[in-house]
Design a protein around this nucleic acid. Structure first.
Lengths: 319, 319
DNA sequence: GCACATCCTGCAATCGTTCGCAGGATTGTG
DNA sequence: CACAATCCTGCGAACGATTGCAGGATGTGC
């Protein structure tokens, strides 16, 4: 029996006679044989592997993406090579360059590089952007602006009229969208005043710093760029004897795992990175396998709905 | 010029004349050529890729390992394929089977499978266990027992004499080691009494459940299996009006990112999964590249020292 | 019994490298 | 100038699969 027959028996069973096929399969099972994926990749030109680049593998915001991407890719028969750009834009091209050679396509999460650099480094490799938009490339993002609008509506309904914003890094797409969304919503409503603070580093320390400014400016509520900063606000407020939510309402973004761990549990905008990651993989595998593009070039980004999760850190203002 | 010359010019520059070498390198730079890693892997029989299996890619305990493994592997010229076993032991053999074919070696973090299954599924693939020990396989673990001893010493020094333990899953190696270590330390000291509660699921909810039992049993301090459970204890204590640390001291394990986010900030045993992941990769790449084994078969596991980080959740007991 | 269609199977090329081997070019030495 | 030693370079065979193509075996109909 020749290797070609074996190959066919395993890969396209209907092309070989039943007797032969069964003989092959029995032998394969007995010997524990399975085709060498490296050789297979070389011949067919596909590796069944995708690459994922994130700025920080330990940041809960990204770990949710990693988990979702890995799960979805595995379900679709792909392995995932992950890399950490360590928040440095200049690391990205190098990482992408090695990934392009070993994978069939890429998911770039929150790329910190500018539009042209992104386009140049991915070249013609099938690529999907997550939480980032570059004209000409498929992308999936959360509807941060809408989340911001929901936050403003929620706080206003509770009676807040003066709301502080603890902004995150300006380089972050979602950071900008969130501030823009809050600003737009406040203007639309007319009777709520927005006090923009920052920007702050998106860590606990940044939140702590913002807390003092928020209290000082007389706001009855503060919206943080993300949950971790909200944690910093909570911690600093407690240290200063400012009671949350009685004296100050606090809202986060992301609904990361810490949101429920804090006390009071955090009111936050849930951006489902699980869905985001899944969707990115679906689009990517579609492009790789040549299925009709859900996202042609020039298509708008897929925007996922977000959801305001109300917990214990927001309440009516005191007076 | 033949392909072999090009190959040599790029891979082993000293084997080709300087003039040719420079000509090749110039051309390669101009055309943006680099050898196809897939073909290379096929020929030399190595993929420069390692596989990493973790029970949950989103659990902060493991994300620290993922981050460290990826960083160290990248520095050593390897890519990392990650997979999530979803806390199901029965998923592991399948994942390992596909990884073995595509990678040069594996890191198995906190494998949930029993010893024989672990040995069988990895076969002769170079493998390093992280936070798990199976006789005959290289392993690196944290010194949980010592961490437990440090906790007991700390609490006893503060004046605690009745300490509750909120145990985690019995299937977890570190879970067992921690309880065993606490028990041994208490017995050694003689004058502190250990009240063992649980086991509980290692989540916020498990901690909350443990909190009530701890308060009821009259302990002045409680040691949780990990930081997330400690967060649950903190949250439940606040809801019930039990003040931490005045009425109850709380200690966690892991020093994960949440430890500092909580308030009061958590006293916890820092097990450096960064060092753990790094060390695992060092041993693995050593084995792959045939360097003198730091860990021969039958060698004891590498045990990393841990460190008690004292923050605000422990204090002298009230009376 | 023959022509023809159908179905399988094997041959051989191919994917893009690496590397042992041999031979040509170059250099050095007497 | 002859000869040996040294140094490069190219040839061609792997690595382990997939797949177009051709031909042998088998089956069908008349």
């Amino acid at each position: 029996m020749s290797v070609s027959t074996v190959s066919r028996a395993l890969a396209s069973p209907d092309q070989v006679a039943r007797a032969t096929r069964e003989r092959v399969q029995a032998a394969a099972a007995e010997l524990g044989y399975s085709p060498n994926p490296v050789a297979r990749s070389l011949r067919i030109g596909r590796t069944s592997t995708i690459g994922l680049v994130v700025p920080d593998l330990e940041n809960p915001f990204f770990t949710a993406i990693v988990k979702a991407v890995e799960a979805r890719a595995r379900a679709a028969g792909y392995s995932v090579i992950v890399t950490d750009s360590e928040e440095e834009p200049e690391n990205e091209p190098g990482l992408v360059a090695v990934l392009r050679r070993r994978t069939d396509g890429l998911v770039l999460a929150s790329s910190r590089s500018d539009d042209d650099t992104v386009r140049a480094m991915v070249g013609d490799t099938p690529t999907v952007l997550a939480n980032r938009y570059v004209p000409g490339l498929p992308a999936v993002t959360a509807d941060d602006a809408d989340g911001a609008a929901q936050v403003v509506a929620h706080l206003r309904a509770l009676g807040h009229r003066r709301i502080a914003v603890a902004a995150g890094p300006v380089a972050s797409r979602s950071g900008r969208q969130r501030v823009l969304g809050l600003r737009a919503a406040a203007e639309r409503l007319g009777d709520v005043e927005l006090v923009e603070l920052g920007s702050f580093p998106p860590y606990y320390s940044g939140g702590a710093a913002a807390a003092d400014l928020a209290v000082a400016c007389g706001a009855s509520a503060v919206v943080a760029h993300n949950d971790v900063m909200a944690a910093g606000i909570l911690g600093r407020a407690r240290d200063r004897g400012v009671h949350v939510p009685r004296d100050l309402s606090v809202v986060g973004f992301d609904d990361s795992t810490v949101a429920t761990l804090l006390s009071p549990a955090l009111t936050t905008v849930r951006v489902s990175n699980t869905r985001l990651g899944r969707r990115a993989v679906d689009i990517l595998t579609g492009a790789i396998e040549g299925r009709p593009h859900t996202a042609g070039p020039g298509a708008p980004p897929h925007i996922l709905a977000v959801e305001l999760v109300i917990r214990a850190s927001t309440a009516e203002p005191r007076s």
